[in-house]
Design a protein around this nucleic acid. Sequence first.
RNA 1: GGCGCCAUGGCCAAGUGGUAAGGCAGAGGCCUGCAAAGCCUUUAUUCCCCGGUUCGAAUCCGGGUGGCGCCUCCA
Length: 487
Amino acid sequence: MTLRVYNTLSGKKEEFHPLSPPKVGIYACGVTVYDYCHIGHARAAVAFDVIARYLRFSGYDVTYVRNYTDIDDKIINRSNEQGVDWKDLARTFIEAHDTDMGALGVQRADVEPRATDYIDQIIGIVKTLEEKGVAYEVDGDVYFEVEKFDGYGKLSKRNIEEMQAGARIDVDERKRNPIDFALWKSSKQGEPAWDSPWGKGRPGWHIECSAMSAAILGQPLDIHGGGKDLIFPHHENEIAQSEAAGDREFVRYWMHNGFVNIDSEKMSKSLGNFFTIREVLEKYRPEVVRFFLLSTHYRSPLDFSDRALTEAETRYERFMNLFARAARAEPQDRDLTEKERASTSVLTGEIETHFRAAMDDDFNTAAAIGHLFTALGPLNAILDSADAEGRGVAAGWKKEVDAFFRKVGGVIGFFEGGIADGEAWFSAGVGGDGTLEKARAMALERVEARKNKDWAKADELRDEIGELGYAVQDTPQGPVLIPLKDA
RNA sequence: GGCGCCAUGGCCAAGUGGUAAGGCAGAGGCCUGCAAAGCCUUUAUUCCCCGGUUCGAAUCCGGGUGGCGCCUCCA
């Protein structure tokens, strides 16, 4: 099976052939660090995290680069508003970003460059563009002259005339054409500034990505991605700069993730309808949020709601329940039974094949996870019959189940601890204050009551345990305490 | 106004011309002292509407209708 990737440039799925296999270079646009990240940022980060993970899983030697834009008008404005040094502001939100994304299981990129560390390279490109006559300086600002670049509009599928017709940009008279964009901006008094051939100034918005991607990965890049909202103007402008400066193709595969919506509308800062990752994590566990984000194909819109998050939790817990049961089952030192063997060969056969086929089809995590659900029935059935017959399962069976979920989980960023994750899930955040010990003692007392068929007392004890914040499950392996939700 | 994307069961959702994955919710059954968890069965002759291409279309083409996005900072 070959990997197929939807390329925004062609508007089609294409077979993926990196420039120099097995090496693959990915550059994903990161965030501008002036505020906390919201769920939309999380979606982009998780989407490209999975893309990098799956490429590695498929045997590619991946270099994943994700930048921080740490110099920009928004950062300057915000630092002025708050009276905080812009560098401190950027540092604060880089750290917050790393914490939040880390919580969601987003792996660190191989290189995480900051725009301000690449000022020399940025100036270099701007100089080249100026020398080539596609950029011009006005009062310390340098603009890219869009009309001089033939392919302008090829990514966002629009042409210069249309844009001029529909332009509602406030016209800067100094620009030769309203659609020309800034490569370099002169600094006002007190603003962050670097020395340049055009005087003190700072980079324009788009140039940093051209500079950093070329410096780290070279040109062309295999994959460049980000949210759909970056297609225009950000990525379109990057193409213009990089191709004009480098005289060669900039990016082979452009990948863009869809938005997170609230009531079918794009979540965005300007609409004010956004939730930060931190806010969401106060209510839902990180695995649930990640599961939610991957439950729809990365290019489709994804509606954020309590209902959707709750469903993601229910779905995720199906796996946790299986894992907890499997871990609890007594491992027996014997060969696998016929049925046990059949259940695991479905895992590594049919299900894994389907899983990979889905991922090969433009990283279709929704379909891939769907196939994982089909493992639940047969596996739970094995545990059902083991319980019914009052025995355990073959140690080898547990090992295979564990290995399978670690393997596929590694691709989508779940199940790192294998079946041990189940018990960990249901015991997270409990204990410490002695209530768990109390509840355990009562559960044991309840076992006695049940032996004596004293159902009244058993139910009473269950209620009392409930008051301590736990539900009791009676399993063949004894009582299991599960923390109650919203307790 | 220009360009583009999307419309699949009560809800979410996959679906790359060959006869509708998966999940949630619901119903019934099994298991259980009762539960919980779990298992089994069950819920779209049909994919917004109308035409067309084809032996065959949810999938391709044309036209509608509805929703959304970009065109200004934005993942």
